[in-house]
Amino acid sequence: MTPPGYRQGDGRNAGGQAETAAGARARGQIPSWARASIALLLLALFGGLALAVLSLSSPAPGLSEAVAARIGESGVSHPVTAVLLNFRAYDTLLELVVLVVAMIGAWSVGTARGCGGDTPGPLLRHLPRLLAPLMVLAAGYLLWAGAHSPGGAFQAGSLLGGVGILLCLSGRPLPDGLLGWPLRLAAMLGVIVFAALGAGVAALPGGSPLGWPPDAAKALILSIELAAMLSIGFILAALFAGGRP
């Protein structure tokens, strides 16, 4: 489509001049006295912050006792998961919303064009066959283990994101049937399930939004975590692919 001469010229222009311009800006426009004064200012900032930390009161306020007191009714026995999905559930819900917004932003500035490389080498073509199932298994384990030991939706979701990146790098295109609403549903699933269940428990007698009843809490938390894991994994892989499919 474009003549090769144009392409080369464009390459030299964009790559070469942008680099030298950046170099000139970095070296030329910020003279050494300005760098030195920036460094001095930042050193002063560091000194002030260090003084602030060193003068902190010794019996520090903490929330571990408050968490430990109520963990019995949270539905899970691992305190971090209890905080994430029960005590501070609003945080986590809005965090999933932030992920979706970031993905919408990335989708609206460009289209995905493969995953960086042109053709995958033999290692990338065959390794995902071995690794992807193992990583999915590990993600499932992390999700389940999150109820009683370190692990949970975020770690499992980022592992799933890694699976997505591997599959993307191995050059397997998504089937056409998945390209429309299933992708968007996968991204929204965490928010949808979280918000629906959160609103649902508010409709119970004496319930409040996102206030899980203690006897159903474990099932609710696990289903939210499952949906959140899928969404996080998908969104991370979509951010890696860099745009609308």
């Binding site: 680099e19 971090v80 992390l142 770690q155």
Partner: peptide, 29 residues
């Protein structure tokens, strides 16, 4: 928990993201 997330995200996903950005921004000659 933070260590697990950092290994998977800070080293894995962010690294892959930045490397692919680098490949797109400054392609080899």
């Amino acid at each position: 928990d933070v260590a697990l997330a950092e290994v998977a995200i800070g080293a894995g996903v962010t690294g892959a993201l930045l490397l692919s950005a680098l490949a797109r921004l400054e392609p080899p000659m």
